[in-house]
Write a protein that binds this DNA or RNA. Structure first.
Lengths: 200, 200
DNA sequence: ACACACATGTAATTGGTTACATGATTTC
DNA sequence: GAAATCATGTAACCAATTACATGTGTGT
C-alpha cells in the first residue's frame, strides 16, 4: 500500500513547493500536528525511496556527500501519484484508545483512579484545543487567501468539534465517577468488607 | 512497556474469569470493538508470553499437544499487574487520521473528491453508532447490575458523543464543499482553463 | 572557541497485520 | 462422513519509534 508517510510528504510538497526533511517535520507539527505525526526515522528513509521512485527530486545541490540541507520538490509523477491517492477511499485504521481502555477496566482499580485519568484527559484536551486554535489563528493571518485555506479550516473545525464534545462528556463522566467514589466511601464505612474495592 | 495487548487480555480475564484466545477476540469485538482491536496474530503469542511470565495460567487441560481449546485465567500476579497498569497515566498514541489527511490536501483533487470522502465518513460513522448502540442495548439487558456496568457506559457514551459531534460537523462540511463545487463549476463555465478540477 | 540550533541519517527493536496451515468439535 | 465453525498457531512482512551518531552553519 506504500506507507501513508509517503503521501504526507507528497501532499506537503504539493503545498509548500520545496522542503527539506527537517522542514517537513516542523511543518507537519505546525499544521496537521493534532491529527498526524511523523518521526525523522520515517521521513528520511522515505525521502530516499520516493526519490528512487522518481516521485520527488532534489532541488539544487545533487549528492554533495553527507551533511548539509537537501530540499526536495514534487515531480510530475509525484503529483499524479498524490492525486491518485487522494481519490481512493480512505481506510480507517483500527482505533486504539488507551484512555478508554483504562476507563473500561476502571472498576478493577476503583473510581479514584478513573477520576485521575479523566482529569488528565481534560487537561490534555484543553492543551490540544489551544494548539488547534493557535494553528487556526496563524492560518487565518497568513493564508486566508490561499486556495487550500477552506480545506484546512474544515479539518481544524473537525478537531475543535471533537474536543468540545470530549470535554463536555468529561464533565458528565467526572460527576458519575465522583458519585461512585462517595458511594464507595459510604459503603466502606457501613460494611468494611462491602462493595469490594481492591483485592479481587 | 510491554504491549497494550497484554493488558487487554489481563483486563478481559479480570472480568470474564476464563477465556480462550478465540473467545477474547470475540469478546473484544463485542464490547470495546469500537475503540480497540486485536488480531489472533497478537493474541496467541501474547498468551504464551503471559503464561511464561506467570501472569495468566491455563485452566484445566495442561499441555495436550496441539489443537483443542485452551482456557486461561488470571493469576494473582496477573491481577496485581493489571492494577499497576491501570494506575499509570495513559499515554496518547500519536493520532493518525487518513480521512483528515485527505481532506487537508483536498484542494489538490477538487471538492468533488472531498464530498465523496465526507459522505463515506458519514456512512461509516452511522454504522459505528449503530454498533455502539447495539452494544449498549445488549449490555443494559445482560449486565445492568454488573459492578463494571457504569464504567462501560461511560466509554459507550464517549463514543456516542464523539460520533454525534462528527456527524454534526460533517453536515456543515458538506455544505461548504458543495458551495465550493458550485463555485468551481461556475468558474469553469466562465474560463474553461480555470481552477483546475481534474487531470493534472 | 564554544554553544546552539539546524540538519541528516542509521540500527535496533517493537508492534502489528495478513495470509496461511492445521487440528478439533459439532451438526446434519 | 461431509461441511461448517470453532480454535490454535506461525511466518513473512511492514510500519514506526527510539536512541544514537554525526555533520553544518551562525552568532557571540
Amino acid at each position: 500500500m506504500q506507507s501513508q508517510t509517503a503521501y504526507v510528504i507528497l501532499g506537503l510538497l504539493s503545498i509548500e513547493g520545496k522542503q527539506s526533511g527537517y522542514d517537513m517535520r516542523k511543518t507537519i507539527q505546525g499544521s496537521v500536528g493534532y491529527f498526524w505525526g511523523e518521526s525523522y526515522g520515517q521521513i528520511y528513509p522515505m525521502l530516499r525511496r520516493l526519490t528512487a521512485e522518481g516521485l520527488i527530486a532534489q532541488s539544487g545541490r545533487g549528492g554533495k556527500g553527507r551533511g548539509g540541507r537537501r530540499e526536495y520538490s514534487l515531480t510530475a509523477a509525484g503529483h499524479a501519484r498524490l492525486q491518485e491517492w487522494l481519490a481512493v477511499p480512505y481506510r480507517m485504521d483500527p482505533p486504539r484508545d488507551e484512555f478508554l481502555l483504562k476507563l473500561f477496566f476502571g472498576r478493577e482499580a476503583g473510581p479514584g483512579v478513573s477520576v485521575r485519568h479523566v482529569r488528565e484527559f481534560q487537561e490534555k484536551n484543553r492543551r490540544v484545543l489551544a494548539t488547534i486554535e493557535e494553528i487556526g489563528r496563524l492560518g487565518r493571518e497568513r493564508n486566508a487567501r490561499h486556495p487550500h485555506f477552506r480545506f484546512w479550516m474544515l479539518t481544524l473545525e473537525y478537531g475543535v468539534a471533537q474536543i468540545r464534545a470530549a470535554l463536555e462528556w468529561s464533565e458528565e463522566a467526572l460527576k458519575v465517577l465522583q458519585q461512585m467514589e462517595s458511594e464507595c466511601r459510604r459503603g466502606v464505612e457501613k460494611k468494611p468488607r462491602g462493595p469490594a474495592k481492591r483485592r479481587r
